[in-house]
Amino acid sequence: MTIFKRINGFWLSMVLAIVFFIVVQLLISRGILNSFYINTLFYMAINIILAVSLHLIIGITGQFSIGHAGFLAVGAYASAVMTMKLQMPFSLALLAGGVTAAVAGLLIGIPTLRLKGDYLAIATLGFGEIVRIILLNVDYVGGASGMTVTHLTTWPWVFACMLIAIIVIANFTNSTHGRACISIREDEIAADSMGINTTYYKVTAFVIGSFFAGIAGGLYAHNFYIIQPTNFGFLKSFDILIFVVLGGLGSMSGAVIAAILLTVVSTFLQEYPETRMIIYSIVLILVMLYRPKGLLGTQELTSFFRLRKAVEGGKQNDNKHTVA
């Protein structure tokens, strides 16, 4: 019974999403949207992927990771190497970016996820810096001057990847596996004593999160003509972290809304470069003052529309909120 309702909500939001996709696609092909707006739109979608992937790690599983730009970098460089050096098609390059980042997530996650809170944060921060320093020193990928990448990212690719990221993470969250992850966030000792293999779920969430960060990296690399290690410093990690915290820890729609909002704010503030960072910071401070639990707290946007209180981390029919 409830399953049918959910499927309906799911298909409804899918239809909305596809309508939005087609409208934008038409606007682009007719040349109505100029390249500035198109670029903002791409950037928004990439940020949404990054936000939801980190949301799974921090908001759902409660593992405070602040090295997400490291996975972004791994995905960006891996996919760029695939297209530029090995002449592989873009689809394969994106997948390779995701898989490489997922492998990196697995290798980093197994030893570091024993750590808790601040210690994990510092370890993941260290990982992000190590990735950057390695890329800086490998001549094969251009060292400090970076790699030139052809522009391959298109609206269908960006939109499809974003939709898949949202659906996969929402579906994962909204199952017994996602509940296991949330229970780890709520109380790891109790989760353990309820028969949940906490290490397994922490690593799984970490790997899924880094996979999508890698995909985002592939899209990012093929959108900007050039990638340099300096694009992936720890400030980039904090940008992603801010999406998740500002949206409300544990709320996927919150993370999506925050990603959209902040992308818009920072893009339009580019016209005022002197005051840009000041206004951006003021926005953050104001939101945190008036909504200390983030824009949506732990709620999902959909839960405002239903009588029954939704308490799980994410709902399937989130994707309609990406219609910005």
Binding site: R179, I182, S183, R185, E186, D187, I189, A190, A191, G250, T298, K309, V311, E312
Partner: peptide, 8 residues
């Protein structure tokens, strides 16, 4: 008590 407070 160690319940999962935010969960239903």
């Amino acid at each position: 008590i160690r319940l999962f407070g935010e969960l239903s």
